[in-house]
Nucleic acid binder design. Sequence first.
DNA 1: CAAAACAACTTGTTAATACAAGTTAAAAAA
DNA 2: TTTTTTAACTTGTATTAACAAGTTGTTTTG
Lengths: 235, 235
Amino acid sequence: MEHIHQYRKLYELLRKHIFSGVYEEGSLLPSENELCAVHEMTRPTVRHALDSLVKDGLILKMQGKGSIVRKPPQNIGILSISGTASAVGVRYLKTNILQKPIIKTWPVPFQFELSKLEQESGCIYMERLRFVDDEPVFYDVNHLPNIYLPRITKHSFENKSLFEILRKNYQVEILGGEQKLKAVKPDKHIKQLLHLKAGQPVLHIERKLTTNKENFNIYSTIYFNSEKHAIFGSF
Amino acid sequence: MEHIHQYRKLYELLRKHIFSGVYEEGSLLPSENELCAVHEMTRPTVRHALDSLVKDGLILKMQGKGSIVRKPPQNIGILSISGTASAVGVRYLKTNILQKPIIKTWPVPFQFELSKLEQESGCIYMERLRFVDDEPVFYDVNHLPNIYLPRITKHSFENKSLFEILRKNYQVEILGGEQKLKAVKPDKHIKQLLHLKAGQPVLHIERKLTTNKENFNIYSTIYFNSEKHAIFGSF
DNA sequence: CAAAACAACTTGTTAATACAAGTTAAAAAA
DNA sequence: TTTTTTAACTTGTATTAACAAGTTGTTTTG
């Protein structure tokens, strides 16, 4: 039963329209009653959809006024809940898939503790190199448990957000996470990938993102060349 | 009309009970219908309250099962809202004041844009060096506008949290902020302060924290030796 | 005894409705 | 003209009702 909920459909639609520029930054969304009429649903349903947008920081509701559109927030950086694609500004971020998603066993030892189910399911592995202005800036290595994700290896990830694919196709939502940051000297491999100058240190991030699916966490290791860009986060 | 909403009252009550230990970590909250009956409200109202708890990360709802209590996350690290004192674990963090708070003019140029009032008020400046296991790890430079803070230069900051003093003595609360992170090669001064080995890079953080007082932002520059410790954050 | 079916829970979604409260602009009064 | 009032919006809170869907323990069946 692949029934997609009404509030979710409206959420995805509005989200798409906000990003694609149908609604300008600072402008007002149609009122709740208008949305009810247009999409033939009741106000609680519309409000449920809008609540999700508020949670994403995509709109700001004001009593008596309306729902104000906030442009794809520059400031949900890598330090917050979203993935790397929303850092720096998506516009200039191109992605090169070094390793397409493949199924393999978890590395041992692994930097985070895995649940039994995660351990048993095996993992999906992928590597990406991400560019800003055609300069390599991010290199990230991702491990996900091989559950809930039928046909994931069939998707193309070129210039697409991993999180978007997880959210749209598999209803996986990021709830939170934890991360460790260090400044490190890069090894040869990293140095070559990121075109680093001699002596240039890199930012090293290890993160675990928890989702709405139990036992489904996303594990990433990120190397970031902070010579020309900085990691930006707001909270 | 200071009417407090029902859902909010239930939210505050449950929140208090979670923190005070009435509900243990991992245990289940009373079911929605039970809460309805006990507090004499309808399910949408109860769900509204529970939604707020979910947003706080205090409970985890699972369809068919119930609402699972999650312990208040210990690890509000440096990447979140608190200051450095809550990172790493306060127990091992000692503070050495290199420069007691003094009043001076703002540096020009300053890394962040200042409001007119901030600019006119002048700034309070202080430097701290912070130790973990008697090894220097943090070095932070702080600029605050010289408003709302009578007699601030009289306080001793040794082994005390700047944020705690601001909150308790001046009712200043941190609402949010933004920060930029980089991995950099340290200059001589930093290298000496943090007892860095040759070639050891440092984490460089610039942050602006906004508060409940208008025009009162806290500006910090932090250098962190990430050789033995990592910056940890959860969100 | 073991597996399957069921019943009794749980939370999730949606509907239809009502009133409260904040905002804004037009209409009325000074 | 300027100020005040009002009316028509907006979102916020709350009720009542019903069914869908996931979980768990019990009962029935093989």
